[in-house]
Design a protein around this nucleic acid. Structure first.
Length: 257
DNA sequence: ATGACGCCTTCCAGGCGA
């Protein structure tokens, strides 16, 4: 079973690119973030033609998450309880006996911006919510966490410590997800590898290696035992067939059935 | 310090992303 996460940065603008990737990589389940499309306008037909059904939690212009899968998707939750004002950032479904959630965590903007405490509060709600939902079934959560877990995950290394995405407040909350029983699947298999999932569009950041690892798949320990491989699909951060890529690469994990 | 690139939106200059 192949499970993926991808911040697509605008699904309508990215549709042909996403379909190209689905055709090439054939994920069974994919959580998407920053779909930036209202549910009524979601391009379901294009996904159905590609063999996927999709559950969506979108809004106009910003944010938005969705789960596409080759099998039935039963929606269990749309939106993080108590955090509705932060936008459409979470959806959870049951897919083929697996509990899967995808999240677009708030950015926070700047340590002195009002969005920063909002980000921390959103994480506190996520930590609390996860402690309830991940128990008792195979569970996996993937998304754009907008936190750099460790200096190894940032092109600037320790020089970025204390700046946005790299503060103790953010990293301790990411650690709380792990302390709650989840495993960072990429880091689990590749403890020392530096691999990024996001590069700024500007200034040639991709080609200069100026990236961050902020897109993660986290699984319960039972899921980690089924893990075969995790790929940060850097090739799909490049232009394909004349189509513009998202600023995030897809990330996928292969699990034994 | 700023801008760079690309997305979005009562449509096009300005906000936002990370």
């Amino acid at each position: 079973m192949r499970i993926a996460t991808w911040n697509v940065n605008g699904l309508r603008a990215r549709l042909d690119f996403v379909l190209h990737w689905l055709h090439s990589r054939q994920p069974d389940v994919v959580g998407m973030q920053e779909t930036k499309v209202e549910d009524d306008d979601f391009p379901h037909a294009a996904f159905e033609d590609a063999g996927y059904q999709v559950a969506t939690h979108g809004q106009k212009g910003w944010n938005g998450v969705a789960i596409a899968a080759k099998r039935d998707v039963e929606v269990l939750q749309s939106g993080l309880p108590g955090q509705e004002d932060a936008g459409a950032r979470l959806i959870r479904a049951r897919v083929g006996g697996l509990g899967f959630a995808t999240v677009y965590c708030p950015n926070g903007k700047d340590l002195h911006h009002a969005d920063f405490p909002m980000k921390l509060a959103w994480y506190d709600a996520l930590i609390s919510w996860l402690s309830d939902v991940q128990a008792g079934e195979p569970f996996l959560i993937g998304g754009d966490f907008n936190i750099v877990p460790a200096p190894l995950d940032c092109w600037r290394g320790k020089d970025a410590d204390g700046t946005i995405f790299c503060t103790e407040q953010e990293r301790s909350r990411y650690q709380a997800l792990l302390d709650g029983g989840l495993v960072d699947l990429f880091r689990h298999l590749q403890p020392d590898e530096q691999r990024f999932s996001w590069w700024d569009y500007r200034g040639g950041a991709f080609h200069r290696g100026m990236g961050l690892r902020i897109d993660m798949l986290l699984g319960t320990k039972a899921m980690a035992e089924r893990l075969r491989a995790v790929v940060i699909d850097r090739d799909y951060r490049r232009k394909k067939a004349g189509l513009i890529a998202s600023d995030h690469a897809p990330v996928y994990a292969d699990l034994d059935d």
